[in-house]
């Protein structure tokens, strides 16, 4: 499973990177989303997979439980990821309104003061 996940993670990162390198802002946003999915899976995979029960303590059962720490890390990461995605989405829409393009090639060198 871990090796399979490693391949999926690699694929998500690879695809995300490819999108990041594209010219359209929306593609860049898609790219960051894919990469953040990849990172979430990466963090969880590094804590090993399916090694025990879900990390909710049960009376009379002393373990093993799966590693709770990566889950805690991921939980905050997901919420933060949501907020930042919202932010760049709004940023992109404002850029489009202001410059009437979302092509990064055309946006190069433009300055808010012009």
């Amino acid at each position: 499973m871990e090796v399979l996940m490693a391949l999926v993670i690699g694929f998500l990162f690879s695809g995300g990177t490819y999108l990041l390198l594209q010219r359209r802002l929306i593609q860049v946003i898609f790219g960051t989303s894919l990469i953040s999915h990849g990172s979430l899976l990466l963090v969880l995979t590094l804590g090993r997979l399916k090694t025990g029960r879900p990390p909710v303590l049960i009376e009379g059962y002393s373990g093993p439980y799966v590693d709770p720490l990566p889950q805690a890390l991921n939980l905050t990461a997901i919420v933060i990821g949501f907020a930042t995605t919202a932010f760049i989405l709004v940023l992109a829409s404002k850029v489009y309104q202001e410059y009437e393009t979302d092509d990064l090639e055309e946006l190069r060198g433009v300055d808010g003061d012009e």
């Binding site: 871990e2 090796v3 996940m5 490693a6 391949l7 993670i9 690699g10 694929f11 990162f13 690879s14 695809g15 990177t17 990849g38 990466l42 995979t45 590094l46």
Partner: peptide, 11 residues
């Protein structure tokens, strides 16, 4: 390259 690196890194 990034994808391969991440996969190898994970393993």
């Amino acid at each position: 390259a990034v994808g391969i690196l991440m996969a190898v890194l994970t393993i």
